[in-house]
Simulated assay, not measured.
Amino acid sequence: MRSDPQLFRDERWLRQHALGLLHFYYPDCLDHRFGGYVAQLSDTDGHVYDGKAKHLVAHCRLVFDFAVGELLDGPNWCRSAASHGVTHLREWRAEDGGYAWVRSGREVADPRRTCYGHAHVLLAYATAAKADIVGAEPAVHETADLIAERFREDEHGLCRGKLTADWEPDEAYRGQNANMHTCEAFIAAYEATGEEEYLDRAYTIAERLALELTDAGDGLLWEHYTTDWEIDWSYNRDDPTHMFRPWGYQPGHLLEWAKLLCTLAEYHDADWLVERAAHFFEAAVENGWDDEHGGLVYTFDRDGDPIVEDKYFWPPCEGMGAAARLATVTGEDDYWEWYDRFWTHAWDTST
């Protein structure tokens, strides 16, 4: 089916589409042998190609997905599947409160503790708490406190990224990506519990990265920093195609921040939030959109020229969310046009 922009703004169709995506995973993703979910389903025919590997982030995202299905008044299995995931996530938790990066079956395969992973744990619990999944809300507070204790660097207002199984530093690197997801998770924690402290933590991360460190650089949000949270312009300069830490600006992350800043603006009256969201959005589409073939390049350099021109699935998704948020908060129709453009490109290139 070719794209139809009218459908993409229809709330009933969007709900149906979201539940259809969940149905692709359910019930095959439920793992009754090792617990939790099997995330490794082929995107061509849905067959399970690895029934043992369990990645913390993939598990948390499925908890989030099924909890959203429950919030959308989806089928009863959305609730039971979300509860199934929360139960296993509680079993994943170690005695010291941390969550290993990867498990194989029921055994730990990679014991490292990451801020990125724990941010997704918090997001999963918070979203499940919004859906009134039993046991989720107490886990929100527990996980929020753990992140503050183990990852947050109070003198910088930001979080370090990777630690060993004994909570010792594992690298001399700081990055915005894990902090962006931590900001997202604390917003969700605030929405789930009403705890103002969680909103304050989210705002502090946004202010430090999207305002102060952005202004200290080129006016856009750089990805890589030193352990003192100084901009590291050289990190991976010789490896610009690195999958997870490429050199350059990432349009997808600029759009993701635009979405988060608009969400924060619902709860905080700082003028810079929406202004900076619009600035990030404009930079992402101006420098990242491929006018000839459509889609967003993966990275661009400090002069706005493309570096990695490969197209990934997730940046247009962030673009949809950012465009819808900005259109709603500003009332400007240009954002709805971008919303349609992101959807049309994603639909026509993936179906």
Rank of each mutant, 00 (worst) to 15 (best):
Glu332Leu: 10
Ala216Asn: 12
Arg152Ile: 00
Gly117Ala: 08
Tyr116Leu: 06
Cys262Lys: 02
Leu163Trp: 11
Phe34Leu: 02
Gln16Pro: 00
Leu123Val: 03
Trp343Arg: 00
Tyr235Trp: 15
Ala128Ile: 11
Gly157Val: 06
Asp238Trp: 08
Val48Gly: 04
Ala119His: 06
Leu7Val: 07
Gly85Arg: 06
Glu11Leu: 13
Pro138Gln: 10
Tyr99Pro: 03
Ala94Phe: 04
Tyr198Cys: 04
His253Met: 09
Ala119Asn: 04
Gly98Asn: 07
Tyr312Gly: 07
Arg90Leu: 12
Leu213Arg: 13
Leu21Trp: 14
Leu163Asp: 04
Ile307Gly: 04
Tyr225Gln: 10
Leu89Asp: 01
Gly51Asp: 08
Phe24His: 15
Glu195Cys: 11
Val308Arg: 12
Gly97Gln: 09
Thr164Leu: 06
Ile147Pro: 06
Val134Phe: 10
Asn287Cys: 10
Trp338Tyr: 11
Trp13Asn: 01
Leu255Tyr: 05
Asp4Val: 14
Val297Leu: 02
Ala192Asn: 13
His23Pro: 00
Phe300Tyr: 15
Leu22Thr: 09
Tyr25Ile: 09
Arg237Pro: 03
Phe280Gln: 08
Leu56Gly: 01
Ser80Ile: 07
Asp301Val: 14
Ala324His: 03
Thr226Leu: 11
Gly51Arg: 05
Asp239Arg: 15
Tyr116Asp: 03
His84Ala: 02
Ala109Tyr: 10
Leu22Asn: 12
Gly294Lys: 11
Tyr49Gln: 04
Tyr335Cys: 03
Ala206Cys: 11
Asp290Lys: 12
Gly36His: 01
Thr344Val: 14
Arg150Cys: 07
Leu255Val: 08
Asp334Val: 13
Ser80Phe: 05
Leu211Lys: 15
Gly288Ala: 13
Arg9Ala: 11
Asp73Gln: 14
Leu213Ser: 03
Gly295Asp: 01
Thr241Ala: 14
Arg325Gly: 01
Asp73His: 14
Ala188Thr: 05
Val86Arg: 02
Ala126His: 01
Leu41His: 05
